[in-house]
Simulated assay, not measured.
Amino acid sequence: MHLAVPQSGVWKLARDGVPPYWAWCWPGGLVLAMHIMTNPQIVSGRTVLDLGTGSGLVAIAAAMRGANRVLACDTDPNAIVAARLSAALNSVSIQTSLADLLDGPVPAQEVILVGDLFYKAAFARRVVAFLDRCLSEKRQIYVGDIGREHLPRDRMLSIGTYPLIDFGEPATAEPRPAHAWRYIGRMA
């Protein structure tokens, strides 16, 4: 993966000494990628959208586990480049899209993957509205998250738990549970 480590060129993209958000393996993406790697039936033979792909980790996991086609989407052009380069490093093929899909139509892909997009309240509301529209069109939706404040737990079914250390915490920190979820929408 093309991530923010001292020997990578990613540091050249830093603003005020801070590398871009996508230059880390965020725990939601990491737990979702882990879950896909151990449960390939989620993506195998299907078309997949990795919403907010960042580094491309989740898209790459889907491609490695037999997805028919993978579209990695993000709003940051550098994230798109990093995802393409990281896919090449892993000898998999993904398509990329530089776009904000949240207010648009339901995408054609059968499976929607979402890692760590519930970090701000207003943004989380947009993501939930988008996912609800996707669910109404029979898309299968999987989410990875370490328990962020704005995660809509009442719309999720936990399908896997993995111990992870959150990005930015010291390596000596105690791992906490990160979840892979199936997005099921509002309960009746």
Rank of each mutant, 00 (worst) to 15 (best):
M1Q: 11
H2A: 04
L3G: 11
A4V: 02
A4F: 07
P6W: 09
K12A: 14
D16S: 12
G17F: 07
V18K: 15
V18M: 13
P19I: 05
Y21L: 13
A23I: 03
W24A: 15
C25Q: 15
G28D: 10
A33E: 07
H35S: 07
M37G: 01
N39D: 14
T53V: 03
S55C: 14
L57R: 14
I60F: 04
A61I: 02
M64D: 08
R65W: 05
G66Q: 05
G66C: 03
N68S: 14
D74G: 01
P77M: 06
A82F: 02
L85D: 13
S86Y: 07
S86T: 13
S86I: 06
A88N: 10
L89H: 08
N90K: 02
N90S: 13
V92M: 10
I94S: 01
I94C: 02
I94E: 05
I94G: 00
Q95W: 11
S97H: 13
A99W: 00
D100C: 11
L102N: 06
G104M: 08
P107T: 00
A108W: 01
A108S: 11
Q109K: 01
I112Q: 10
D116I: 04
L117K: 09
L117G: 08
K120H: 13
F123Q: 14
A124S: 15
R125D: 13
R125S: 12
V128E: 11
A129G: 03
L135T: 02
I141Y: 01
I141P: 00
V143E: 05
V143D: 05
G147F: 04
E149R: 10
H150T: 04
D154C: 06
D154R: 13
M156K: 09
G160M: 00
P163L: 08
P163N: 08
G168T: 03
E169I: 00
T172I: 15
R182T: 00
Y183M: 12
I184A: 03
